[in-house]
Design a protein around this nucleic acid. Structure first.
Lengths: 223, 223
DNA sequence: TAGATTGTTAATCGATTAACAATC
DNA sequence: TAGATTGTTAATCGATTAACAATC
């Protein structure tokens, strides 16, 4: 699928945002869009959009632009969201439950198949039709159901052990909300460390330095 | 505080992570650390750590390294987390409630002063000792309490109107969890668009391209 | 066709890494 | 003092932007 062998992480991280904007455009009945107009809506340069897309293929047409639906589908296919991987959530506290309820796993390449916790208060609770299982059953469950991704929503001190067990069980992807940083240096493991606290602190810095940052992100348009 | 007038966003985004690692080190009784050892723990280069810190000042000592507690305090002060800004959450659904319960606002420069929703089912509900208020009271509340930051956890279609009203009320910072992108081009407004769905889709891409990405993040160490 | 807009190469800009003199 | 490690300048690398020929 990829034209160039090595796609940079910066490009990859922009793909879901393209996908989102194109989905919105499609829902609003927009049939075609030029890189110039998309760039104005997204706050990017048209050049960057064309560069990004051409990492994967020539999806546009000179003099016309891009077909919204076709490009939306292409990016979905690049992201690989049609191939559904089984997912589990470990930690059924507030964050774990909120994610279970709010994230459209089905539209993002995943299907939620299990939720785990260690507290008797939540074990057995039904979340989105899934019953919370005792975390001691993790090994049994994973051997039977072979989940590919785990959402980590346990407290910091519990995280290293859970991650270690899951890696032994063959989990390849981690979506980590715990305060613990999953290292990137395991071979064959991919990780998204979310760290909401870091995001809030970044906002704190920006709030404190508002004047220095004023009109920070330039809304460049071509020509 | 800043030595150089313009600190890049890449540097700023690494600060909370430094702060977190230094806090952990401090709690583990580590008194001093060299950029080399910190780089090994964090998966960065020692050079980058020294460059980053020297944007703000010379906090180390040749031949010794950095005093963990002093550096931790310095970064906290750079982030500005001691000056507490009043914060509100708009949207008391799963995500809003999870954030209210889990995020240590007090340790991150903020104090939660109000939670809003439009649904009669949640209005009046107590979350962390705060009673959920009808969102129609937003104007009255904000004029009285002058919050500085708003956490946006409403559905996508409600977001544009809420953001518009909050900007009129003088809110300067947005921590946005809605599916709607708050544009960066308002003058004097700072925004963190979190977009958990984008993060999950990025992980989907990485999971699908695991082999190509294998051992992606190099753990460089000096010398 | 003429006008528009892509795909792609080249130029620029910024961020990361390397090197090393300064100094604790 | 000798060894270690910083702060800082220079070199490298990568990502973004600009330009334009190709072409629909």
């Amino acid at each position: 699928m990829a034209r160039h062998e090595k796609i940079s992480i910066s490009v990859i991280r922009r793909l879901p945002r393209y996908y989102r904007f194109l989905g919105d455009l499609s829902r609003n009945g927009v049939l075609r869009i030029s890189s110039k107009e998309l760039s104005a809506r997204m706050g990017l340069t048209a050049s960057q959009i064309r560069q990004d897309l051409n990492c994967f293929g020539g999806f546009g047409q000179q003099g016309y632009g891009y077909n919204v639906d076709a490009l939306h589908a292409e990016i979905g296919s690049i992201l690989g969201i049609s191939k559904i991987f089984p997912a589990i959530i470990v930690g059924a506290g507030n964050i774990g439950r909120a994610i279970a309820m709010n994230i459209g796993f089905e539209n993002m390449g995943f299907k939620l198949t299990g939720i785990f916790d260690s507290s008797p208060d939540v074990i057995g609770m039904e979340i989105r039709g899934i019953s919370v299982i005792d975390v001691s059953q993790l090994e049994t469950f994973c051997k039977a159901h072979k989940p590919k991704i785990a959402v980590i929503t346990v407290p910091q001190q519990a995280a290293p052990d859970i991650v270690d067990r899951l890696i032994k069980l063959g989990i390849e992807s981690f979506w980590n909300f715990s305060h613990f940083d999953i290292a990137f240096n395991y071979p064959g493991i991919v990780v998204e460390n979310v760290h909401l606290g870091d995001s809030l602190m970044t906002l704190c810095y920006m709030t404190n330095n508002l004047s220095a940052l004023a009109a920070h992100q330039p809304q460049k348009t071509e020509k």
